[in-house]
């Protein structure tokens, strides 16, 4: 295993002073999980709380990486240092992954931005901890905004995207993306819609579909409460059109979060979710360990011999954990 000669506090100090390599190493530790990751996340947590988290999600080929690149350029031009965490699925068979779409940028943007690719590594529990920890690291080091880019399929991705302050859902014309996004539950978490490749036939249909679904109340009910309705922006990430509007929409949404007080609700929600995820993971791990103890084996045998039911056995195991 790769060892780093520096201690975690040393790496953290170096990262704070702007050394990319140290931040890169810390992200690896966070991703690997376990006690070390918790230590890093603990350090970061104390310094975090200043960034704005943007989730960008869309199907493969929706052009969301190109779009992210455009946003980075614009952020960079206005003096922002932004970070991107690009989450891609690992192969369930081999655990390997091809992470890509590191966006090509101009020199200035290169200087002002930090891009990190992260594989899901087959366990949603790990990702649910690694992503918030990575966000806090970026936050602590001073990146603002932090962009989380995910492929908009599957619960994990929706959860990750939904945990952002502002969630941007990217759809493309003609592929039934809007309908798919609805099915995946993305409409409920979207704060901004982008119809990318707006020069393609069917772009206006996609816009109309989204409008209709919003009318039918597929959103979380925030509109009635707060008067915020997710805007639909037509964009062409290859040519860069629409990017400025997206930035403005993000700013509008951020202002709305502040003025309505929802920002606190969201951030509390995110903290709550992180604690909950950690609890579940801890209980899950301990429960698995219990299954291989004498007591656990006895419970399994009792179920196999039909002396007790699986439900009863599970309750007994949980009770034994809680009483420890």
């Amino acid at each position: 295993m790769k060892s780093s000669k520096e201690t975690i506090p040393q790496l953290f100090e170096a990262a704070l002073s702007g050394e990319r390599r140290s931040l890169g190493k810390l992200l690896t530790l966070v991703e690997r999980g376990g006690e070390t990751a918790d230590d890093v996340a603990g350090l970061a947590h104390r310094k975090a709380g200043n960034t704005h988290v943007i989730g960008i999600t869309g199907a493969p080929g929706s052009g969301k990486s190109t779009l992210t690149g455009r946003l980075l350029e614009l952020f960079s031009q206005t003096g922002h240092n932004s970070a991107v965490l690009a989450v891609d699925p690992s192969s369930p068979l081999t655990g390997g992954a091809i992470l890509g779409d590191r966006i090509r940028m101009d020199d200035l943007t290169d200087e002002n931005s930090f891009i990190r690719s992260m594989a899901t590594r087959g366990h949603s529990g790990g990702l649910a901890l690694a992503v918030p920890a990575a966000i806090q690291l970026f936050d602590a080091v001073g990146y603002k905004p932090v962009i989380i880019e995910t492929v908009g399929v599957g619960q994990v991705e929706v959860d990750v995207a939904g945990a952002a302050d502002t969630t941007v859902v990217v759809v493309t014309p003609g592929m039934g993306d809007a309908v798919q996004a609805n099915k995946a539950g993305l409409l409920e978490v979207a704060d901004i819609f982008v119809v990318n490749k707006s020069d393609r036939p069917g772009a206006n249909d996609a816009r109309r579909d989204l409008d209709l679904m919003l009318d039918l109340g597929h959103i979380s009910g925030l509109e009635e409460k707060t008067g915020y309705r997710p805007p639909i922006i037509m964009a062409n990430s290859l040519e860069g059109t629409g990017s400025q509007e997206i930035i403005e929409a993000i700013e509008n949404h951020a202002n709305h979060l502040k003025s309505s007080g929802s920002i606190k609700v969201r951030q509390d929600q995110r903290t709550l979710m992180e604690i909950q995820n950690r609890v579940e993971l801890l209980i899950g791990t301990t429960a698995k360990e219990t299954l291989s103890t004498e007591f656990g084996k006895a419970m399994i045998n009792a179920v196999l011999n039909r002396e007790t039911s699986p439900a009863q056995a599970a309750k007994s195991i949980v009770n034994s954990l809680l009483n420890d």
């Binding site: 990486s65 190109t66 091809i98 890509g100 779409d101 590191r102 090509r104």
Partner: peptide
């Protein structure tokens, strides 16, 4: 015209 940058697809 701008330049073309390929998405790094494997």
């Amino acid at each position: 015209f701008g330049t073309y940058v390929e998405r790094a697809i494997v």
